[in-house]
């Protein structure tokens, strides 16, 4: 059974159709990538799947259950986590606290426990702290644990977003351009990181412009163009799809290089 199924999903912003009847499904346990030129509707699709936006029409199913129109926190509770293209780190909190917020749903958070600091709360907090520190080590952020997030360099913030999303131990992880703005070395590091994340971990849906990263990581690629699904399939087929090449050749020479190289 597919993990996520999207049926005829559409979203208009004041008459402009950002997404125009998109249908696809994602198999569990694999790395999927979503590509397409700027303005193709990738981030809109992410926002619909994570409940940040409500669709104009269409339905979304997660693990067989309809989730259309649920708020973000409800989708998070079902096991969907995400990162943001424009960083959404909690800047005035420490790096460890950022990751602890990622653990929110697994923590003891009943009011009386929080007010009284009950033993169950202390235990949950201690365990969460250990898990957060383990994640920070795995992502090479352990030396920043006590630092306020706003003191971190850009590349570290990108990794912090991934750490926070992983802290929720999600079933489906949506990554919105994890390598955007990173140099070649940082991109390679993120590629390594994502490979290890995907191994035995969550199902991943990745939006990325770096074609080399996409072709290396993804087992299944969705191509969006003008709010429609242009093509989908394994990387080797997408790479040779004349429609995809056409869409990129039209306006996106630089990414075409990536496709050609990949």
């Amino acid at each position: 059974m597919s993990l996520l199924e999207v049926q005829h999903l559409a979203k208009s912003f004041g008459g402009v159709r950002a997404l125009d009847g998109v249908s696809f499904s994602l198999d569990a346990g694999r790395v999927h990538a979503l590509i397409g030129p700027n303005g193709a509707g990738k981030t809109t699709l992410f926002n619909l799947i994570t409940g940040m936006l409500a669709p104009t029409s269409g339905r979304i199913f997660f693990r067989g259950q309809e989730v259309t129109g649920l708020p973000p926190e409800a989708l998070a509770a079902l096991g969907i986590a995400r990162t943001f293209q424009n960083l959404q780190v909690f800047l005035d909190m420490t790096v460890r606290e950022n990751v602890l917020v990622g653990c929110h749903l697994r923590l003891e958070r009943r009011l009386h426990a929080c007010l009284l600091r009950t033993p169950s709360l202390r235990r949950a907090e201690r365990e969460a702290r250990e898990r957060a520190d383990r994640l920070l080590r795995e992502l090479g952020l352990d030396r920043y644990a006590e630092a306020r997030a706003d003191s971190l360099p850009y590349g570290a913030l990108k990794r912090l977003e991934i750490a926070r999303a992983l802290a929720a131990e999600p079933v489906l992880l949506l990554l919105d351009e994890p390598a955007a703005g990173c140099n070649e070395r940082e991109t390679a590091e993120i590629g390594e990181l994502l490979r290890s994340v995907a191994r035995g971990g969550p199902t991943v849906l990745l939006v990325e412009h770096d074609m080399r990263l996409v072709m290396n990581l993804a087992e299944h690629i969705l191509v969006l163009d003008h709010g429609r699904l242009l093509a989908e399939g394994p990387p080797e087929r997408i790479r040779r799809d004349p429609q995809v090449i056409e869409a990129y050749l039209g306006r996106h020479g630089q990414v075409t290089d990536g496709v050609a190289q990949g």
Binding site: T50, P72, F84, V89, F90, M93, L105, A168
Partner: peptide, 14 residues
């Protein structure tokens, strides 16, 4: 405090 920093990200964390 997270909501204060970024309400969207906090809600995405559940």
């Amino acid at each position: 405090r997270a909501v204060h920093g970024s309400e969207l990200a906090a809600r995405a964390c559940g």
